[in-house]
Each structure stands twice: as structure tokens, then as C-alpha cells.
Design a protein around this nucleic acid. Structure first.
Length: 184
DNA sequence: CCAACGATGGTCT
DNA sequence: GACCATCGTTGGC
């Protein structure tokens, strides 16, 4: 069942946790979200939007429930889901998925057969799913990318975020405890 | 096993 | 020109 608009309009830190266990669906490909990070407009220098709006981060200032896909390190893409209210400039980074359906396609896209290496990082999962800037600023209500509900209530652990040179102190990373597909 | 490093290009100053 | 919400490879143990 497709998650509706209201689900995404909640505060960013709350959405980052609420997304854990839900399914990211793109055509034949399904992945369960097992790791996320929250990025906040206020008091978070690690957030792309914290200095204000630019062409790149514009989707973060749009309505919740849309994608923000950016290109990083000359090679990789990262997928975010915009949260909160329009104009807030906040989003949730999807950092890892548990592969659920379409594993053969993911294995081909990633050039590896090892399941733990398909979607266990923000650059890995976009490669496995074939997501690029073409998928930036798309509505998760309209597709072709969707979030489906899942009734399970995962056990959530919190930690510092990964890979930042600033804002590391903040504990805004969330993941499903003990899940083998969380990034290392 | 683990730490160090280089690839590679868009974005902003 | 510097920075970067990463990852695969390399070379050590």
C-alpha cells in the first residue's frame, strides 16, 4: 500500500525513523529501507540547505514527499526524501536498503553477486536501482518511484552521521538494529 | 582483517 | 580552486 502525502509531512527526525522498514519501489525493484540520516535546516552545518537555497538544493525547499537526488564525488548519486513543510529545507537521506525483489537486476547494475554489497550505502543503492539526476524532484505519489507501507515495527538504533566534515556531533543517523544490509 | 588513497566532475566562492 | 552526505582497490598485517 502506497504511503500518502501526510506521512512525509512530519518533522524530519521523525520521518527518518518512520521510513525504516518501509519499501522503496521502482519498477521491478523493491528494497526495504534499513538506514537513514536526517538533515536539518537549523543548527546543522552538514545539511546542503543550511546556507539557504541554491539551484542544487532547491528540491529540499519544496513540498514533502518528493525526491532530492544529487551527484557526489564525480561518480555517485544519493537519494533523499523531502520532509516537513514546504520551504523548510530539510530531507532524509536513504543510506541503505535490504534487497527484496529484482535482485538479478541489482546484481547486474552493481557488477557483483554479493547481496550485502548491493544496497548497503547511499551510492550503492542508487547504482543498484539505476537512479540518477533524472529522478530528482519527483513526487513519490506519482512515481515512478514509490514508498510502500510495511506494518513491522523495527528496533531502531541512533548514531552520528557518516562521511561529514561538519556537523558530526549530531546523532541523526538511524538504522534497524542488527540488520546485515546496513552500511559499514 | 583494516587503513589509506585515488577516481572523477558538479557546485559554489 | 576547493570541497564533497562515496566506494573500490591496494597493500599491510
Amino acid at each position: 500500500m502506497l504511503l500518502r502525502q501526510k506521512f512525509f509531512e512530519r518533522p524530519t527526525v521523525e520521518l527518518a525513523q518512520a521510513l525504516l522498514g518501509k519499501y522503496l519501489v521502482y519498477g521491478q525493484l523493491w528494497g526495504k529501507i534499513v538506514e537513514t540520516e536526517a538533515y536539518l535546516y537549523r543548527g546543522d552545518p552538514g545539511c546542503h540547505a543550511h546556507k539557504g537555497q541554491t539551484p542544487r538544493n532547491a528540491p529540499m525547499f519544496g513540498p514533502a514527499g518528493r525526491t532530492y537526488v544529487y551527484f557526489i564525488y564525480g561518480m555517485y548519486h544519493c537519494l533523499n526524501i523531502v520532509s516537513g513543510q514546504t520551504g523548510e529545507g530539510e530531507a532524509v537521506l536513504i543510506r541503505a536498503l535490504e534487497p527484496v525483489k529484482g535482485l538479478e537486476i541489482m546484481q547486474k547494475n552493481r557488477r557483483t553477486s554479493k547481496l550485502e554489497n548491493l544496497c548497503s550505502g547511499p551510492g550503492k543503492l542508487t547504482q543498484a536501482f539505476g537512479l540518477t539526476k533524472k529522478h530528482n524532484n519527483l513526487s513519490l505519489q506519482k512515481g515512478p518511484l514509490y514508498i510502500y507501507n510495511n506494518k513491522e515495527k523495527p528496533r531502531i538504533t541512533r548514531s552520528q552521521r557518516i562521511g561529514l566534515s561538519t556537523g558530526q556531533e549530531l546523532e541523526l543517523r538511524f538504522f534497524i538494529q542488527g540488520n546485515r544490509f546496513v552500511s559499514k
